[in-house]
Design a protein around this nucleic acid. Structure first.
Lengths: 230, 230
DNA sequence: ACCTGAACACCGTTCAAGT
DNA sequence: ACCTGAACACCGTTCAAGT
């Protein structure tokens, strides 16, 4: 005979999973600015301090929330050409972000990408590579996909807050290559000089102009086509 | 005989201008997370409460900070073709945002664009129009410039938090058209049906796919060109 | 092992009181 | 007209204390 209670999910024990789910739900309903550890605890019928048994701190919660959304992105379709595969993936990502509109702002505040985010990028790189793109062009393509052309290029790997020594750096690159083969391949190709670090060797100015010119050229072509057909 | 003091800018009276300058400097040096009304006051040698004589609240400060950065973007060059004009403008915007890296995150949190931001968009639209782009293609071009293709389209005018009645809406569109001619032209063209509001009539899904396909087609072209030349 | 109460060092903002 | 001190309702987080 189960005892009925009005409390939200009363008997289910707290867990990281449950905390993150509640955080996503709260942000979806009330906005990310309304998310606080205290309100999150309240939502789970628990004091805020209890959350720290399942989660390191609020930053950890935010990381977990991003992972939750990234986890909702469909895996790349199989048996199609690279273009529809990349296309479907980007559209699926867009749908996930539309379901959780706070994600882009939270993403912008993250300093280091989580494994899930890296996995998403890695598989996206894999699609380009499988489509016959050179490492170099794939690299530019990835930057172009993420850039905002009103003045801002999203840096995938911000190397400015990097306090690792070269050996640790090389080791990290090594282990990364085993988990994210395409990311590793690209990182290696980009930084094959002495002081090589992941993301260094990215000429962000070049990448910005690459995406910008790709768009401008495409737009010009469309304009001229419209003129001719008139 | 001026009296010397070590206090930072002691005799200069407080003003909105001075508050915003200090806010930008503080965010540049210590990061946007470190910006608080209390620290901002401290930086100006004043209690936090004094700031409220020159600024409505913290949101107002953030709006002012964005305007400060947008104000640093160079005016569009004259006497050049549309492409170099748009290009120079985008590159200038990028330089401004690189000088103040917190801007993109603050921009993302703004709900309504300030007049300065509108002016920036308006003049950008003007460049496309002067370059012979149709209103329609200009509209798509503007969306494409601002979109982030990993899943997120930046909405220039988020109409979801719009509580104006149709008459007020029409009046706003009218006054907007006088201040921002190109924006007004476009808004009018987009929403020429009954329930017309600024930004409604934007098929965001279409815009996202437009930018995405423009990039994918361009990338394909580059890949094939690289293959041939090899 | 997990949850709590009290406490600490912070927030943004209001308001009556000072000059 | 501008600045201030005290106060309010919030934060994230620590830690000793409870079960």
């Amino acid at each position: 005979m189960a005892i009925q209670q009005n409390e939200p999910s009363p008997r289910i024990p707290l867990s990281r999973e449950r905390v993150l789910r509640a955080a996503v739900a709260l942000a979806d309903e009330r906005g990310i600015d309304e998310l606080s550890m205290r309100k999150l605890g309240q939502q789970l019928g628990v004091e805020a301090m209890s959350l720290y048994n399942h989660v390191a701190n609020k930053e950890d919660v935010l990381d977990g929330m991003v992972d939750f959304v990234v986890g909702e992105i469909d895996p790349p379709p199989t048996g199609t050409d690279w273009k529809t595969a990349v296309r479907e993936r980007a559209l699926s990502a867009r749908r996930a972000l539309l379901r959780h509109p706070w994600t882009s702002r939270v993403l912008e505040s993250r300093t280091t990408p989580t494994p899930m985010v890296l996995e998403y990028f890695d598989s996206m790189i894999g699609l380009f590579r499988a489509g016959g793109f050179s490492i170099d062009l794939t690299h530019h393509a990835m930057h172009a996909m993420g850039s905002r052309l009103f003045g801002f290029t999203q840096e995938l790997f911000d190397d400015s807050n990097n306090d690792l020594d070269p050996e640790a750096e090389a080791l990290m690159l090594q282990t990364m290559a085993t988990h994210y083969p395409y990311l590793g391949e690209m990182a290696l190709a980009i930084s094959h000089d002495e002081n090589s670090v992941v993301g260094q060797g990215c000429d962000d100015q070049f990448e910005f102009e690459f995406a910008l010119d790709l768009l401008l050229d495409g737009l010009e072509r469309l304009r001229d086509r419209a003129r001719i057909s008139q």
